[in-house]
């Protein structure tokens, strides 16, 4: 399994996709945090940026780049079909569930690295913009660290969910479009219909993980378990359906 994981990492390092998505993740995170500070500080805003709620409002957007980690996870798995490299991968490792598991681990691992760099960028952007507007960024507040830690976990879990989805769906564009439609539209509607069920859905669980101040969301640990369960469930379905599928 170690060899397989190392090979999956080597696959990523030997194309350019991963660097483009890393740049996008960090860039979008910095923009989102900067935007959140500016919005909260605009003329008619009543939010106290130095309060707990202020910190949560600004920092929960540090998961904004997570969408690119989800896309990367999908590419890790479904990209093999797009580039027709899946056959070679299965010739090397005919036990396909091992390939699926390795890809999930790498999706989570790369997500952790992306998430850590994005959290660092979010911290820097928040600190800089607070100072620029004449506020003090409350670095000793535990909120700062639970939110940034949540953002790292968010990226790790969505990287895993992306990889599992890519293995299941195989169609890279379809998987990405499907998830974007879910994130942008479908889950929102479900959440409006029933918040008590909606908060168990992936986007709401992700928001809980970065302690979004709005809405009656799950606690951070429960949200992490819920997202991990989604990743595991999608992976399990992928492994089972792979037993019947041709490469």
């Amino acid at each position: 399994m170690t060899d397989l994981i190392a090979a999956e990492i080597l696959k990523l390092r030997t194309t350019r996709t991963v660097w483009a998505l890393l740049a996008a993740t960090v860039g979008v995170t910095m923009l989102a945090v900067t935007g959140a500070v500016l919005a909260a500080d605009s003329g008619n805003a009543t939010l106290d940026l130095e309060s707990d709620r202020g910190v949560r409002t600004v920092l929960h957007v540090s998961a904004s780049g997570g969408i690119f980690v989800l896309v990367l996870g999908i590419i890790i798995a479904a990209g093999e079909y797009r580039q027709r490299t899946a056959v070679g991968t299965f010739l090397t490792t005919p036990r396909r569930s091992r390939v699926i598991a390795a890809k999930l681990v790498v999706g989570a691992g790369v997500g952790t690295v992306f998430g850590a760099l994005a959290a660092l960028a979010a911290f820097g952007a928040a600190n800089h913009n607070y100072r620029a507007k004449g506020y003090t960024f409350p670095v000793d507040s535990s909120d700062v660290w639970t939110i940034l830690g949540g953002a790292v976990l968010y990226a790790a879990l969505f990287g895993a969910i992306g990889a599992a989805t890519g293995s299941l769906v195989r169609n890279q564009v379809g998987a990405i479009v499907g998830w974007l439609a879910w994130l942008a539209v479908a889950e929102n509607i479900l959440f409006q219909i029933s918040p008590s069920i909606g908060r168990w859905l992936p986007v709401a669980a992700g928001r809980a993980l970065v302690r979004d101040p709005d809405g009656d969301l799950l606690s951070q640990p429960v949200a992490a378990v819920v997202l991990a369960a989604y990743a595991a469930a999608i992976m399990a379905v992928a492994m089972i359906s792979e037993r019947r599928r041709d490469a």
């Binding site: 030997t14 996709t17 580039q83 090397t92």
Partner: peptide, 28 residues
């Protein structure tokens, strides 16, 4: 078994050497 099969492709952005390194790594 060494196999060449019709629908086996290569990632266009990867070099030939890196393609082989990936296979070598995965196969130990």
């Amino acid at each position: 078994v060494g196999a060449v099969i019709d629908d086996m492709g290569f990632h266009p952005a990867r070099t030939g050497r890196n393609h082989l390194r990936v296979v070598a790594r995965a196969a130990g």
